[in-house]
């Protein structure tokens, strides 16, 4: 079977059940992401963005529908995905070098060559000098860069990012956005970024998916014009078409219950 999409969700629903209640986080969500595409997932708090990401990562199983990565059904965490969270999740008892080796250790892919590549990446992100440091000796921005290296060291085809830059300062965030953008393009990786920052969503992505409602569903998809997509995140922000798009997105999120079914495809 030839897979034309990197990520495909078909009518996916997920309900969290606990002793006292059940919450349907998302209902009948379908979308396709092409290989090499960058998707931003936005929407109000609690609309199920993290749930969608955990489902793609194989950390949760859908109650209905199915999820395919490059045509293959997701049954558990896949070797093709890399996952990053808001909190860097660095292990305090490991040095930077040991932290970036964690994923490789768990996947039993650890060898000299992979470690060398990971260290090259650490250099590229400006942390070559810090590999024997402990996380407590690093700033928030540096820690998140180490977490990025740890994820990229696994050479994922699909990068899943759950608000990775929301806990770091603006300057570092812009810097990391640029770096990530360059790395993704160079390696032709597919990415899904969950963010609350609408500017970030527009500046980084090819398409923005707006999730809304309770339970969450795709409310609208905004396609970014070629002119903006070609630019680096920082430059995209000052493109003349950027402000109108930002307004459009802002308006859309303000009125959560207006569904534009015809936009979905």
């Amino acid at each position: 079977m030839v897979a034309s999409s990197a990520i495909q969700l078909d009518n996916v629903s997920k309900t969290y059940i606990s002793r006292h209640n059940q919450v349907t986080a998302i209902r009948a969500v379908s979308f396709c992401v092409k290989p090499g595409e960058f998707i931003a997932l936005v929407g109000p708090s609690g609309c199920g963005k993290s749930t969608v990401l955990s489902l793609i990562a194989g950390l949760l199983q859908p109650d209905e529908g199915e999820i395919r990565l490059f045509g293959e059904m997701v049954k558990g965490p896949s070797l093709r995905t890399g996952y990053m969270l808001q909190h860097d999740g660095l292990l305090e008892w490991r040095t930077v070098a040991e932290n970036i080796a964690l994923g490789l250790e768990i996947r039993k892919e650890i060898n000299k060559q992979r470690l060398k590549q990971a260290h090259a990446l650490l250099h590229e992100l400006g942390l070559g000098h810090a590999d024997q440091y402990y996380p407590s000796q690093l700033s928030g921005g540096m820690r998140q860069r180490v977490a990025l290296v740890r994820t990229l060291a696994l050479e994922p085809d699909i990068l899943l990012l759950d608000e990775p830059f929301s806990a770091i300062d603006y300057q570092n965030k812009l810097f990391l956005e640029g770096l990530l953008n360059a790395i993704l393009q160079r390696n032709e990786m597919t990415a899904v970024l969950v963010t609350h920052d609408l500017e970030e969503a527009l500046a980084m992505s090819d398409r923005v998916f707006i999730l809304g409602g309770q339970p969450g569903a795709i409310q609208r998809i905004i396609q970014l014009p070629e002119e903006i997509r070609a630019l680096k995140p920082l430059e995209a922000r000052s493109h003349p078409l950027f402000r109108p798009l930002f307004h459009e997105l802002w308006q859309e999120i303000q009125q959560p219950h207006s569904f534009h079914k015809e936009d979905i495809r």
């Binding site: 194989g58 950390l59 996952y83 999740g89 292990l91 964690l102 768990i106 996947r107």
Partner: peptide
Amino acid sequence: NPDHLKLARAFG
């Protein structure tokens, strides 16, 4: 820390 567990699970 549940985030640590989540990440490690995502690594497989």
